[in-house]
Amino acid sequence: MSARAELEFPAWPQFDDAERAGLLRALEQGQWWRVGGAEVTAFEEEFARHHGARRALAVTNGTHALQLALEVLGLAPGEEVLVPAFTFISSSLAVQLAGGVPVPVDVDPDTYCMSPDAASAAVTDRTRVIMPVHMAGQVSDVDALGKVAADAGVLVLQDAAHAHGARWRGRRIGELEGPAAFSFQNGKLMTAGEGGAVLFDDDAMWEEAFVRHSCGRPRTDRHYRHRTSGSNFRMGEFAASVLRAQLARLEEQISVREQRWAVLRGLLSAIPGVRPQGADERCDRNPHYMAMFRVPGLGEQQRDELVDRLVGAGLPAFVGFRAVHRTEGFWRAAAPALSADELAERCPNSERLSRDCVWLHHRVLLGSEEQMHAVAALVAEEVGRL
């Protein structure tokens, strides 16, 4: 078998007759949007139940899910939201879209999740929300972050875009503190190409979110009495029908990825100079959205060259996120008074991760155990060439 054949992993997205049946069901019901249709409502009920939440609201995408949740939490213009410096830009962008000021804070160098100590140090009298990101499926230290929030009198919003099906000390995401926002973008663990959802444990918050996601219009309104500001963040029936099928196979896929990561992590750990993402054992169900590792000491150019060589060999590899304060877009809207260099001094772990982190698509972890050895052998070969 050729080296490239060894790296032929399962395709993503995955689909079968369940998605086909769902799309046909949505088509033939005669109503293709959530008002009058049945698929979005059914998906919300199933997704909430699966994650231990009282209610779920399906929306257009993960960025909108975060923005909507912040609005429902009462974020006022100019108030601050603590976000990890090492994350996809949507975490900070959603804060800016909701009128707030994102404040990047550093992450733990092992788990890549928001550091509770850094969060505590960043709290000011303008802080309204702490928004941890469950990076690559590793649940943030919600116990410590919850204490920081409680001590400061602020709220928690979970960015769970990577954490479908995750658990922390046996509790599902919907059973943890604060609303949780998910993404169903094409690469996510469940997908309809695009889409998002917010979990709530409070009926009144869900109702407020519904009104805001439907142009400020209450569910039963027939006279255009738009009660508040909002936008059209409604999910369509076709997307919901696909997501119902995706949800049905989620747990089986998570089990495979957990088994494969245990193998791959051990193999990567044995490669000189390679450090795979660590695990907080309190996260006792990690869905592994990404297989992440670092090569400490690499510069950004070397890391980019490494990723290019891995991709050229057939491995779906990607560079790690750029620290949000190192992106031009971050500074195009409300931002902290600190400069990028000053934020960098406060976020040294995020700076290093921006330069030396690599991640592999989660479909790699749906491959065979033998393929994990092939992946590790390729990484060892290419790192050894640096």
Score class of each variant (00 low, 15 high):
residue 164 H to S: 07
residue 382 E to H: 13
residue 130 I to W: 06
residue 125 D to A: 07
residue 103 V to R: 01
residue 71 E to F: 02
residue 329 G to P: 08
residue 189 L to V: 04
residue 173 I to D: 04
residue 377 A to E: 15
residue 104 P to G: 01
residue 57 L to E: 06
residue 238 F to Q: 15
residue 355 R to F: 09
residue 355 R to V: 06
residue 372 M to G: 04
residue 44 E to T: 05
residue 96 Q to I: 08
residue 235 M to L: 13
residue 121 A to H: 11
residue 207 E to N: 05
residue 139 V to W: 03
residue 224 Y to F: 12
residue 116 P to V: 05
residue 321 F to D: 15
residue 26 A to R: 13
residue 205 M to S: 06
residue 269 S to A: 15
residue 349 N to T: 15
residue 174 G to D: 10
residue 159 D to E: 08
residue 334 A to T: 10
residue 290 M to C: 02
residue 130 I to Q: 06
residue 248 A to K: 12
residue 49 R to L: 05
residue 4 R to K: 15
residue 298 L to K: 13
residue 202 D to G: 04
residue 379 V to I: 12
residue 168 W to Q: 05
residue 200 F to M: 01
residue 362 H to P: 02
residue 167 R to T: 05
residue 287 P to V: 14
residue 386 L to G: 07
residue 311 V to E: 12
residue 125 D to K: 12
residue 276 P to Y: 07
residue 370 E to I: 10
residue 371 Q to H: 10
residue 259 Q to I: 00
residue 153 G to E: 07
residue 165 G to T: 09
residue 57 L to I: 14
residue 10 P to G: 12
residue 329 G to S: 15
residue 347 C to V: 07
residue 93 L to R: 15
residue 250 L to H: 10
residue 12 W to L: 07
residue 271 I to W: 03
residue 246 Q to D: 13
residue 210 F to D: 07
residue 29 Q to D: 10
residue 258 E to I: 07
residue 21 A to R: 14
residue 70 L to N: 07
residue 103 V to F: 00
residue 336 P to D: 02
residue 233 F to Q: 11
residue 193 G to A: 04
residue 220 T to W: 12
residue 224 Y to M: 08
residue 240 A to Y: 10
residue 340 A to P: 01
residue 375 V to I: 09
residue 222 R to C: 09
residue 265 R to N: 10
residue 280 D to T: 02
residue 189 L to K: 03
residue 330 F to A: 03
residue 11 A to Y: 14
residue 323 A to I: 02
residue 137 G to T: 10
residue 291 A to D: 13
residue 269 S to Q: 13
residue 66 L to G: 01
residue 290 M to H: 09
residue 159 D to H: 02
residue 38 A to N: 13
residue 183 S to Y: 06
residue 258 E to S: 11
residue 214 S to N: 15
residue 48 A to Q: 13
residue 84 P to V: 06
residue 379 V to G: 03
residue 228 T to F: 05
residue 271 I to V: 11
residue 7 L to C: 12
residue 175 E to L: 02
residue 317 A to D: 15
residue 121 A to G: 01
residue 207 E to W: 06
residue 328 E to V: 12
residue 66 L to W: 06
residue 53 A to P: 01
residue 340 A to Y: 02
residue 229 S to E: 13
residue 375 V to P: 14
